[in-house]
């Protein structure tokens, strides 16, 4: 297994610069589609480079779907959109066998569903039934679909970009923890200010997004993936990721006292892996050959927040998982600030 690991050498500056420019080209294109959401765009690019799935949560009209559609346009990848509704069945997204007659012979042939695409937009994913949501579990983790005992590999790369609405919760089905854990990020799409609205009004006609050219094909994307894999993760940063994820579990030594009573379950090892991979992608986007502490601090909230199970006390006090992660990052310093033994 160790031979698959990247060698402990740093990328050349030219490679890093090339990877960064590729990611920045995507960022530039997305910025045209979604105005004033720089951080959201960065997180989308990081999730893409880290080969992670993205869950966008926000109010209607904030541009979630437009963002994903723009990403599909920028990447020369097979893009499909699935509008999740309560009556949607698993077979509707995975596909299924149909009876087909060919040369006088009738046989069942697997007809691929909309899930067989490189970029899948799962719009309003929480409106589908748990049964249909569960159809995504295998696809998101193992990138394959099993129907009637027959497995079908999904095309690579495979991304699920899901959206959900935090309001109008009647007739919705909250995503189970196992489902949430498979998303690299859960990003809360923030509202925009008046200046951004003004820019939108001036640059758009009838809400139509500008026409965008393809900036990256599958080969380039694979190259980006290779570069991300070559980003070095120092031991100190890896140690910080481990401490951070471990501290999300109540009862551990480094968990802040304030969080001890607010958390019921912490993040899984999958979260630590996701944080490390997201850190690599973030470092490449920033043009660095290695992951820094700041990458982890900035990514901790979108990576860890949706993986926590809060206690009743936190709910009563109105605390959200994002707030708790912010507290954790603030209290848990990546390095010893008290080197001299005095109070900082």
């Amino acid at each position: 297994m160790t031979e698959n690991l990247p060698s402990p050498t740093l990328l050349d500056p030219s490679d890093v610069e090339r990877g960064q420019s590729l990611l920045l080209s995507i960022k530039q294109g997305l910025s045209q589609a979604l105005i004033g959401q720089e951080r959201l765009i960065e997180l989308c690019i990081i999730a893409l480079a880290a080969r992670g799935h993205l869950l966008l949560e926000g109010l209607p009209g904030l541009g979630k779907t437009e963002l994903v559609k723009a990403m599909g346009s920028l990447l020369d990848l097979h893009f499909s959109r699935i509008q999740f509704t309560p009556d949607l069945l698993p077979g509707d997204i995975t596909g299924g066998p149909i009876l087909q007659e060919e040369a006088g012979k009738r046989s069942f042939v697997f007809q691929q569903g909309p899930l067989f695409a490189n970029l899948v937009l799962a719009d309003e994913i929480n409106r589908a039934s748990p049964k249909t949501q569960s159809a995504l579990l295998e696809a998101m983790q193992e990138q394959r679909v099993t129907v009637l005992g027959e497995s079908h590999d999904l095309p690579a790369p495979f991304f699920v970009l899901a959206t959900q609405n935090p309001i109008e919760l009647e007739g919705t089905y909250p995503l189970p923890e196992a489902q949430l854990d498979r998303f690299l990020f859960k990003v809360e799409v923030p509202g925009v200010g008046s200046d951004v609205l003004e820019a939108i009004l001036l640059q758009r006609r009838r809400g139509q997004t500008p026409t965008m050219d393809t900036v990256m094909d599958a080969a380039k994307l694979q190259e980006v993936f290779g570069l991300v894999d070559s980003i070095y993760l120092p031991e100190a940063v890896a140690r910080y990721i481990a401490r951070l994820v471990s501290a999300t579990h109540p009862g551990t030594e480094e968990t802040p006292e304030e969080l001890q009573t607010c958390l019921r379950y912490g993040a899984s090892p999958r979260a630590a892996i996701a944080l490390g991979e997201a850190g690599r992608a973030s470092a490449l986007l920033a043009g660095r050959p290695n992951v820094d502490f700041t990458d982890i601090e900035q990514l901790a909230r979108p990576v860890l927040a949706h993986r926590l199970v809060l206690d009743h006390k936190a709910r009563i006090e109105g605390r959200t998982a994002s707030q708790l992660i912010d507290i954790l990052v603030e209290r848990l310093s990546p390095v010893s600030e008290n080197l001299s033994g005095g109070r900082a």
Binding site: L10, P13, R288, F293, S336
Partner: peptide
Amino acid sequence: ADWLDRNRHLGGLLVTSREVDIGPW
């Protein structure tokens, strides 16, 4: 090294340099 890297905003290069050869960096 961790402290110096973080507080001087070295982007993890100093920490990395203690583990691998950073060469052109």
